[in-house]
Design a protein around this nucleic acid. Structure first.
Lengths: 201, 201
DNA sequence: CCAAAACGTTAACAAAAGATAAGAATTTAC
DNA sequence: GTAAATTCTTATCTTTTGTTAACGTTTTGG
């Protein structure tokens, strides 16, 4: 995708939260970087500070931890979704997980430093603050829902819910990653699938 | 606690995120309400929109869902912590959980409407936006950590972690609520405790 | 002060999940 | 195009958790 189209996607994403005019966009756009991440390459790594936040404009990435030598996948970002090791990015502390491209991925990114400059920017600072707030609130709600699911639902119920609403995850993500995402092992998910098959058959 | 002291606690809380001067405080303070919530009374209920966000200045509250007639406790707020059914408050949609006072509780609260007015306020709007962003980011990180714990740790590991860092929860919360909070049943937590006792003994 | 409710532990059993390994099908990489 | 790696399923066995119920202790509420 050509960089201008990529930037256009970023603008669309911003405008899904706040309205900005062309003048404001002109103030913002020069601070954005369009970059590529080849499949299997890392956007973030444990022990390193995640210096950028970004929007996936093409491709997909996977978030995972390593525990006892095993990868445990916790999340994904697809087209038109944000990517960042949020805690590391916001607190300027080393992160605990990898973010890795599942496919060749194109992103529009912003460094922490630039983000702070934008917050302090005379023309668009206020709008950026609002955008930052709305983004954080959006992901806060996503996480709240996810914690609620862990507290109130069994793994089988979480999988059934994913079958209803999962969309892209079910289409594009290998099953053993989905298992981790649900908080169980791949073997366990395979058994859950068989149980469901038998019931609906 | 007298209302002025309660308001002072709110100001301190705001100032742990942003700095405000007396003029700005004068613009903010009149919009705040100080209120009481008797033990076992609800601050929020499922099916109702959570119209207020607040700071606990004294006491404690418990968040819980009801599933199959059983209460499942998901969270707590203590002194100097926010309380709100965040998703319901932010999206203006009916919530899914109760928020109930564990003890007689005093709060400083703000309605959604007032919150939006403050964001649009000429003098302090920008600071409130920033405050709102930082709050959301703070709780986003809390939830991110909690999801990570569900994905990467066993219930026993989560309990051991809580023993190290839990603080107030361990002192003030009945064990069967803690069990729900960890994502397990009270019976299971009791067994985990016995296992740990045997090892450390 | 007393009865009722709440709380934590334990036991017994059933259900589910984790660990490990094997095997088949598919995909990837050179 | 072929060997290697990945993916999913299945089986076996172990461990953990859920469920239900009982019991003693503590707390709560009139």
């Amino acid at each position: 995708m050509d960089p201008l189209t990529a930037l256009g996607k970023f603008r669309n994403h911003v405008e899904s939260y706040i309205s900005i005019n062309d003048t404001e966009w002109q103030a913002l756009a020069p601070h954005l970087e369009v970059s590529q991440l080849k499949k299997k390459k890392n956007f973030a790594e444990p022990g390193k500070i995640c210096s950028h936040i970004g929007l996936v404009v093409k491709g997909a990435v996977r978030y995972f931890h390593i525990k006892d030598g095993e990868e445990i996948t916790g999340y994904f970002s697809f087209e038109n979704e944000l990517l960042s090791s949020y805690k590391s990015f916001l607190t300027r502390t080393p992160g605990g997980n990898y973010i890795q491209a599942l496919e060749d991925t194109q992103m529009v990114t912003l460094s922490y430093k630039v983000m702070q400059q934008l917050y302090a920017h005379e023309l668009i600072g206020a709008k950026m603050e609002r955008f930052g707030r709305l983004i954080a609130e959006h992901y806060l709600i996503c996480y709240e829902d996810r914690v609620t699911a862990f507290i109130t639902q069994t793994p089988e119920e979480r999988y059934n819910k994913l079958l209803e609403t999962g969309g892209e995850i079910l289409q594009r993500i290998p099953q053993h990653y989905i298992a981790n995402f649900l908080g169980i092992t791949p073997v366990s998910l395979s058994r859950i699938r068989r149980r469901i098959m038998k019931i609906s058959a």
